[in-house]
Write a protein that binds this DNA or RNA. Structure first.
Lengths: 330, 330
DNA sequence: TTGAAAGCGCTACCAT
DNA sequence: ATGGTAGCGCTTTCAA
């Protein structure tokens, strides 16, 4: 910047004015400075700028997702990116893989980088460790799973209602033995989905069979094995509710391998690309990822812009997408 | 940091030593400083640190992909992330959506943020605009598509060979009318895949029919419509080579809607989740995304570590994954 | 409209 | 083993 100033024959401050598009620079001087910038290939240093600025804005936000390569996280990231781009805000993205330690260390890393805000799909049980940052005004929006131990903005879907929807749908189609495939039990959304599954049975007056409830499944491989075991029972389920997309995939693999894909009903939680091209097409409870992402961005940027109202909790209602697999009769 | 120093009764420099884990601090002093840090909730400011450091490292790299929500880009991002995490390097990720203007502006934004390196899946025809940065030593690794107009490291798959593989496979199964569904023609990988498709015909002595070659398709919707039109021809194709994953999906939609999924052969380029669960399971040419990502990371971090050998160009051979859809007889 | 000087939070360098 | 001082590249403040 000093070189640019020298070449253009102006002061540092004037170059700064040009670079930041501030008023109070004559067209003539502006042109001279811009030419000098071009000649020297000067690139403004945003880190130095941030350091000195009174607001300390880095124009960067951090996003901690479950796994940037899974379709739900990736869709979220994309929706956020679109909102961020309009403001010329960059996104630091990371995957947590349900590892609490990683959440702690990545949050620290983002704070050391002075992000203007944080979006997180938490994997820890409680986020008390964020209390200091929240109090000092760091904008944080929780997504998919609400905050525990602290209060902050959040955007979640009504997991219980979604599970109730899915399970009731199969009960109404006459199923009485519906299996449940669930995520790691400690994850709050998994608990809510399980509660919805049970509620549906209660509402319909159908007894639950604990042998049909399998939790703590990490991914499609786990789900496939669990499904295999369920189908080997003396009195196997005639329907399955898979409480996450990867678990539904594992279930499909198992059913397909045994030629039961058209015999056992299946409803998944969380839509994914190609679910409609499976055979039978997969009936799912859909969480509108783009809508969630848009809401998250709205909350986050409002906070960044100084909104200091009490935390807001947005709940998005999931919808049942009927495609075929969930309508198979017992 | 000043406050920490005051509270611990040491100098600024000593706090800096503790924070950076430098040697030459007694255990006693270190403990005192750490306690002060804890009491004050002090968080090191990485931007200020970067500014002052002699190497100017930001421990941040920029990644420009086609679209972070598509499985190929997302897989790349994830592989890179895993390599970056080991070094405590953060990732700024963005989507280009095949828009050249966005590439220019995002590269600028990343340079202003002083990233230590850049990974890009370019969407521009030429990247001469990067010449200055490359000359001044910015590590850049091109992925999926090689650099044009400048020289830099790259990791690409052998697109021509992959297309040759796919097309020959169907020719060997007796097909003589194989359609081609291709990406935007200006994209170099699309051109290479088309060349492979043609080469296969030439090798087999099978004449090409221009009516069966459709390029400039943007996504599954385009592909579906193109496929519909092809199937409406008087002499429709008995097989299809879809040169990108989203195009294969469009083709499947069209075939499925007409009940031809088991009648017309289909091979896609680029594997994706669930391709094996379609009916029939989709035969594809697979590019090993994780392997590509790992190679990219290896090249990038070697450059960041000071490697100044001439640019390296890694070519990954794609493999044919036979699953069913590509083996349908004419 | 333009500029000079101070200082953001930190690390390099040299001294003790 | 510890500290003082200068200065990274920029913006702020105030003066001209």
């Amino acid at each position: 910047m000093r070189d640019v100033a020298a070449l253009a024959g102006v002061s540092l401050k004037t170059v700064s004015r040009v670079v930041n598009n501030e008023a109070g620079v004559s067209t003539d001087v502006r042109t001279r400075v811009e030419r000098a910038i071009g000649q020297l290939g000067y690139q403004h240093n945003l880190a130095a700028s941030t350091l000195r600025r009174s607001d300390g804005r880095s124009n960067t936000v951090g996003v901690l997702l479950q796994d940037v390569s899974n379709s739900f996280s990736a869709g979220m990231l994309r929706a956020l990116e679109d909102a961020a781009r309009e403001r010329d805000v960059a996104i630091l993205a990371s995957s947590l893989d349900e590892e609490p330690d990683r959440e702690h260390s990545l949050v620290g890393s983002l704070i050391r980088r002075r992000v203007d805000g944080l979006v997180m799909m938490p994997t820890t049980q409680r986020q008390d460790y964020l209390a200091d940052e929240l109090r000092s005004g760091l904008p944080v929006v929780f997504v998919d799973r609400g905050p525990k131990g602290v209060d902050a903005d959040s955007v979640v879907v009504d997991n219980r209602a979604g599970a109730l929807l899915a399970t009731t749908h199969m009960l109404e189609h006459g199923h009485r033995r519906i299996a449940y495939l669930g995520d790691l039990n400690r994850i709050s959304t998994a608990a809510a989905r399980r509660a919805g599954y049970r509620q549906a049975h209660k509402d319909a007056g159908v007894p639950l069979d604990p042998a049909l409830e399998v939790g703590d499944l990490r991914g499609d491989t786990d789900a496939r094995e669990a499904m295999d075991r369920l189908l080997d029972l003396d009195d196997p389920p005639t329907a399955v509710f898979a409480a996450r997309n990867s678990l539904a995939i594992g279930a499909v693999q198992s059913l397909r391998a045994r030629g039961l894909a058209h015999r056992v009903a299946l409803v998944g939680f969380d839509d994914f690309p190609l679910a409609d091209l499976l055979d039978p097409p997969l009936t799912v409870v859909r969480q509108d990822v783009r809508r969630i992402g848009t809401e998250v961005a709205r909350l986050l940027f409002a906070r960044i812009d100084g909104d200091d109202a009490p935390p807001r909790h947005v709940v998005i209602e999931p919808v049942l997408v009927v495609r075929g697999s969930g309508e198979i009769a017992p």
